[in-house]
Amino acid sequence: MARAVTPRRKALNTVVAWVIGLIIFFPIMWIFILSFKTEGSAILPPLDVLRSSWTFENYGVVQDRSDYFKYFGNSVVLAFGSTLLGLIIAVPAAWAMAFVPSRRTKDILMWMLSTKMLPAVGVLYPIYLLFIKLGILDSRIGLTIVLMLINLPIIIWMLYTYFREIPGEILEAARMDGANLREEVLYVLTPMAIPGIASTVLLNVILAWNEAFWTLNLTAANAAPLTAFIASYSSPEGLFYAKLSAASVMAIAPILIMGWFSQKQLVRGLTFGAVK
């Protein structure tokens, strides 16, 4: 900004923004607090909750009772697996569209986007049926493929926008300098594209990690990731706030941290470049 703001104005901005920020963040902070309380004290009025003693036992209980790490493992495999698989298919496609554009490139990109807008519920039964016929219902491989396919348009789109920012003249310079296609990709393109690829991976891991339509409908015991694990708490018995909180914290913590690093990419990835 071109002009300095008065200290009073700045202080006011700060107070208002922090209050709103903390209110929005409060639910997450609250389950974080509850996860370190006993079940008995987790249901007390808020002030009593804060005064009650702290404990780490919920995290152990969640693991013992419901095998948290199995679900966590599934989430990791699905999120990273689908993203990496998507990258393998998307990198060449995005590279080609960005550096060798043809008249149809734009149409292809738009068409790819349109597949992302297909409502999942509209094709639920066919996918369900195909999964049964292929014997991949409740399997990690089946779900990995579905998650890869639903995020493929976003991966291609993001990579395309990043690649397009790499000036074509640089690749031509490499070609003039005697680099063959392999060397061009290895020494020039890849180092320049790595930040973009990393952002793409980050955002798509987050999206796949939190995906909760296909993961709930196509898994049971074997391939269920954390989304399904948490959903099993929707009709529990007895007191469960502290355990649910601990389980939730474990389910969202890794992705929350990744998410904080990917704010910028979020805008680019989810608006398909429509907002700059």
């Binding site: 003249e169 310079a173 070609r175 063959n180």
Partner: peptide, 20 residues
């Protein structure tokens, strides 16, 4: 002949330096 084998060198408008 491919560009690299023509024995020519080129200076581009944008310089096209490798930023990394």
């Amino acid at each position: 002949t491919v560009p690299a084998k023509r024995g020519l060198a080129m200076v581009f408008q944008s310089y096209a330096l490798y930023p990394h």
